[in-house]
Amino acid sequence: MNLNAMLEMLDEEIVERLKTAVEIGKWPNGIALTNEQRIICMQAMLAWEHTHLPQEQRTGYIEKPHSAKHTDEDDLPIRFV
């Protein structure tokens, strides 16, 4: 099964379950996700959101403030130290 076929089978309810499983590290029945399952669930969730949701509703979206004093520094990537 390819990625597109898998994404077509997902709906919003399933994606929410995947998101919860990734967040808490467990399936709804309480069984822990393996690292591989967590990665696959996260990839499927993000791919589905990219296809079906507007940018501002996707996981990880950060809104850029619109200020009158816009500089080139505002466009620099976020750096975590």
Rank of each mutant, 00 (worst) to 15 (best):
L53W: 02
E36N: 11
E56N: 04
R79N: 07
G30I: 06
E63R: 10
E49M: 03
V22H: 12
K69E: 13
Y61S: 00
V22M: 11
E63T: 02
T59S: 15
W27G: 03
L46P: 00
L53G: 00
L18F: 13
I39N: 11
D72E: 10
A68H: 07
I78P: 00
R38N: 12
M45W: 02
T71L: 02
I39H: 13
E8A: 14
R58D: 00
I14N: 11
I24M: 09
W48T: 01
T51N: 10
M42K: 12
T71P: 00
T34L: 07
H50M: 09
I24K: 13
E12N: 04
R38G: 10
R17P: 00
E8N: 08
E16N: 14
I24E: 12
H70N: 05
L18T: 02
Y61D: 01
G25H: 11
Q55H: 02
T71Q: 05
H66Y: 06
L53F: 03
T34I: 09
Q57P: 00
Q43Y: 03
L33A: 07
A32K: 15
I78N: 04
E23H: 15
I24Y: 09
I14R: 14
I40W: 08
P28T: 07
L18I: 05
L10D: 00
Q55D: 03
Q37A: 14
E8D: 13
R79C: 07
D74F: 03
T20L: 15
E36R: 11
A44C: 05
K69S: 11
E16C: 05
K26F: 15
I24N: 15
T59W: 09
L18V: 02
E49W: 01
D74G: 00
M42A: 14
E23S: 14
D11F: 00
I78T: 05
I62T: 08
A47N: 03
W27T: 13
M9R: 12
P65E: 04
F80V: 11
G60H: 07
A21Y: 07
E49G: 01
K26V: 12
I78C: 01
